[in-house]
């Protein structure tokens, strides 16, 4: 399953570097774009929070803004990577039909190149959080695990949607719509706990439970909820493996169905 990918790891890296370079070529702002996107999400999150604060009469607190910022970055990574990965096979049609190498490289290279943006933005956020003395706890050790889950979940969906789009362009449109409105179904601007007894329902969305767990670790300084940790773990690892399996099975039909 991973033999070919390991053999072609240099190519995966070359594609990742290419993606990063191309995104910032001929742009005046260059790498600042990596920060700009999440900043926009954070600003709109603050707007929403402010509106809620006015309505409920409880003033907007700094911790709420921090919470929005911490959840905005993984969300920006998730939708950014998915958007590019979904069309990755179709937009590289000339390579898919002409040269052989494992096709997983297309979607996965987009996931990794967006990870680069994610880390640039995360470092910036970490610096800000440090200045505001948000503090640290031993539970931060859970953060790499959650990020790994996030990456695997994104990679799994990326493989599935890239493969789906190759056969049916419908998938691309569906993904577009989901990514645009997904923020309303995912606890980014709000917390799942605000929904009371419906909280569980919201957390069934795997990306939602990952975001909430990251928030718990970084902002609330608590251990992640064990049940939801297992739930997201199953989604991430299992989802990735299943998606890779489907992708590799369909791979030989790519060239003549694109």
């Amino acid at each position: 399953m991973f033999k070919e990918l390991i053999k072609y790891r240099e190519l995966l890296w070359a594609f990742t570097v290419k993606n990063i370079k191309i995104r910032y070529k001929q742009t005046a702002m260059g790498f600042l774009w990596a920060i700009f996107m999440p900043v926009l999400i954070v600003i709109s999150g603050i707007m929403v929070k402010k509106a809620m604060a006015v309505l409920s009469g409880v003033p907007l607190s700094a911790s709420q803004i921090i919470s929005v910022s911490v959840k905005a970055l993984p969300w920006a990574f998730f939708i950014g990577a998915l958007k590019f990965a979904t069309t990755s096979l179709v937009s590289n049609m000339n390579l898919v039909t002409k040269i052989y190498f494992p096709r997983e490289i297309f979607p996965l290279s987009y996931v990794i190149s967006h990870l680069f943006d994610f880390f640039v933005a995360s470092l910036t956020l970490a610096a800000i959080l440090f200045l505001y003395k948000v503090g640290a706890s031993v539970y931060l050790l859970w953060l790499p695990v959650m990020v790994l889950f996030l990456i695997l979940l994104t990679a799994g969906f990326s493989l599935l949607f890239a493969c789906g789009t190759l056969f049916f362009r419908d998938v691309k449109y569906i993904v577009d719509v989901i990514l645009t409105f997904g923020i309303f179904f995912t606890p980014v601007f709000y917390d799942a706990s605000m929904f009371g007894k419906w909280e569980t329902f919201l957390l069934l969305n795997p990306i939602g439970s990952i975001l909430e767990n990251i928030n718990t670790i970084v902002v609330l300084h608590k251990a992640p909820d064990t049940l939801w940790l297992i739930y997201t773990g199953i989604w991430s690892v299992g989802g990735f493996l299943v998606a890779l399996l489907i992708f590799q099975n369909a791979e030989s039909a790519f060239a003549e169905n694109i």
């Binding site: 290419k18 370079k21 070529k25």
Partner: peptide, 30 residues
């Protein structure tokens, strides 16, 4: 396979960058 010359080129990359990318696509190590 020398099926289509330059199939793996990317317009925005320089000649140098494309040599590395295309070499990797063709299966060469860095």
């Amino acid at each position: 396979a020398l099926i289509e010359v330059g199939a793996g080129f990317h317009e925005d990359l320089t000649g140098r960058e494309n040599i590395y990318l295309n070499g990797a696509i063709m299966g060469m190590k860095k």
